[in-house]
Design a binder for these strands. Sequence first.
DNA 1: GTGGTCTAGACCACA
DNA 2: GTGGTCTAGACCACA
Lengths: 129, 129, 129, 129
Amino acid sequence: MLIEIDFRDKRPLYEQISDRLKRLIEQGVIGKDELLPSVRALSMELSINPNTIQKAYGVLDRDGYSYSVAGKGSFAADVSALLPARREAFYHELDEVLKRAPALGIGVADVTEHVRGVMKKGEQYDTDH
Amino acid sequence: MLIEIDFRDKRPLYEQISDRLKRLIEQGVIGKDELLPSVRALSMELSINPNTIQKAYGVLDRDGYSYSVAGKGSFAADVSALLPARREAFYHELDEVLKRAPALGIGVADVTEHVRGVMKKGEQYDTDH
Amino acid sequence: MLIEIDFRDKRPLYEQISDRLKRLIEQGVIGKDELLPSVRALSMELSINPNTIQKAYGVLDRDGYSYSVAGKGSFAADVSALLPARREAFYHELDEVLKRAPALGIGVADVTEHVRGVMKKGEQYDTDH
Amino acid sequence: MLIEIDFRDKRPLYEQISDRLKRLIEQGVIGKDELLPSVRALSMELSINPNTIQKAYGVLDRDGYSYSVAGKGSFAADVSALLPARREAFYHELDEVLKRAPALGIGVADVTEHVRGVMKKGEQYDTDH
DNA sequence: GTGGTCTAGACCACA
DNA sequence: GTGGTCTAGACCACA
């Protein structure tokens, strides 16, 4: 339900899955220490090879978004510790995009206005979709 | 000179090359109808197989950034016609980044302030157009 | 079976292949989300280098006729979205041909009669959609 | 004046030139036995290598659109003899285009109506601009 | 000289 | 197994 696969997406399946789960954890949809769906369950729900799910979960563990307990499953980690790094990444990617504005004749005012328009809307409902 | 390859970059070589050339054409560093370096010349300069350069040039051609004439060379196209599409793409990518702000506790004011700081700096030295 | 190469044809092999596949997808012979023959399989069937097949598939992908997933294969895309553009292209090519009629002493009546003769025949056995 | 080169056109230069001259002869703009511009003159006017012009003229000769007299130049041939073959080619190309109509949901009525619209307009002024 | 096509064969990540 | 990237090297028509 929470995870949808887009086969036309060029990213590998495991990355689509891990990215989606990361966001769910970041947003608190899956709370700290909450049990993630089992590999087998997710595998069947998405009709995707268990090895692929397993790989996605491995990424989550490695990136600090989850921790696994043998025989029990994977649990959402406390992502608050990752916040500074994620913020830094956010601003870095923002800068990469902004770099191209001048060549497009897009000025500071254009961007800030756009930002206000987009983010104001989001702030009211918040939950990112 | 104008093109540098980053072997740590995970993107394929041909994409790094085409992206770099696209930006040079967008910014007018390579002007309309100006001759691009030949496939062979760039191949030797970067020590990269001609086929890979050829692939990069193929991307430029199909994306409307250049036109190639067998026996003559590859020339920068008139990219002004692409401006609307490129602006649209810019805002789309911007939105993709901004989506993640709320979950990071980053508000409209944070972003607009950052945008002003980054873009103001660029505007002063701006030699791009 | 579905694809035949004409070595007398002056068009490059990869173009013959991509054109043929495009038409099969347009006509619904290869349905939406149906798996195309693998690069290697087609390569062997046609006795053509895999790189050439790969190039043909690259064209299909970028033109919106298929989407490829590494590790899974290439699938026919939903081409209904391309219909308006394809219709426009059809009329454009038709116009290019018709332009030459006056210089050949061929009038409106000649053309329309010919069109009726050719297309009526097709409509009866039409199994394409 | 009569010939314009489009460097973005994918066709080789010599083919663009020979095609254009063929049409001028077909339409009678260059009449039977009329002297074509000299290789040297056309070369300078178009800023194109004389060898390329020479090649274009070779095609005209080979295809029966002109005849060359050593020391005098190239003259437009009597193309009336070519009419049947050109008509056949016209209908053949027309058929190639029409083949695709059914898959696009374009019927006989659509095509004939379009043909009438396009050709009626042309019939009044005729000379193909 | 130029771009473009093709083969042969290696290697990669992904499923 | 799958698609995708890259190298090496040959060959072509065109300018």
